[in-house]
Amino acid sequence: MEGILNQLPIGLSIAAVLLLIALGLTFTFGQMGVINMAHGEFIMAGAYTAYLLQDFAGRNAVLVALPVAFVVAGLMGLILERAAIRHFYGRPLDTLLLTWGVSLVLQQVARDLFGAPNVQVLSPTWLQGTFGPMPYNRMFILLLAVGSVVGIWVYMNRTALGRRMQAVMQNRQLAATSGINTGQVDQLTFFIGSGLAGIAGVALTLIGPVGPTLGTYYIVDAFLVVVAGGLGQLRGAVIAAAALGLLNSYAEFWTNASLAKVIVFAVIIAFLQFRPQGLFVLRSRALT
């Protein structure tokens, strides 16, 4: 019983990180049909941002790093979108391979800049306690994810820019003919989505070491969240991330780490038998 309770914060914090990562993916995938494998390296960039800021901000680096990492990762995403991805809209499989090439290069850049061994970011002293079974640092990650979801929801539903984003996602041509500058909307979406990956990277420094391949551990699971949640669906991403994070940690707890991933994979395949397009589907009459 105690084990079950102890596993809860681990599962929830993994879910929170997955959600932060998957939010960016689900919007770029849903809106632009882009599969960005370099998204994992934006996570890594966010984490290294926190690492570098330690020199200035000491143990509070994590706090300072949140906005900085958002901008750093966001700008990286923006540059990638402008330089390469925008030429590949509507060719998801090609963007997947292209961005994987980018991710290889970025990993090597990180290795050359920071060295291959992992580095450590010291978490703030005021995050070093527990509240019941819930360590403060994991609670902080959870709050971060909740805050981001609320922010995205407000952005999407209560601002003009967000409504334009939804319009482009639902029907690009119609949005363009209504006078929306779809290219600009794409850039903004990419910036925000990549920025969230940066925040996820900062969050990850609280629960583990930072290395050049940090992103690769999470990117596959984050894509599974997108697949299970449905493209471009905020609700879907939240529910799928929570389910996947908890399933992962409990499957590890009850069986062992090596079987957990296989179980998660089997559950997702089984789930797709009932909901082939994920939890929530953007209704459309378009034929593929």
């Binding site: 894509f223 957990a260 991933k261 797709l272």
Partner: peptide
């Protein structure tokens, strides 16, 4: 059969590869 295709299929096969490695390492 469920018409899961394109990028979804690619992601699933990649997840299978990731799961396979972890399974082999663990056993």
């Amino acid at each position: 059969r469920q018409r899961v295709r394109g990028a979804y299929f690619a992601i699933l096969t990649q997840a299978l590869a990731a799961a396979m490695v972890i399974l082999l390492v663990g056993q």
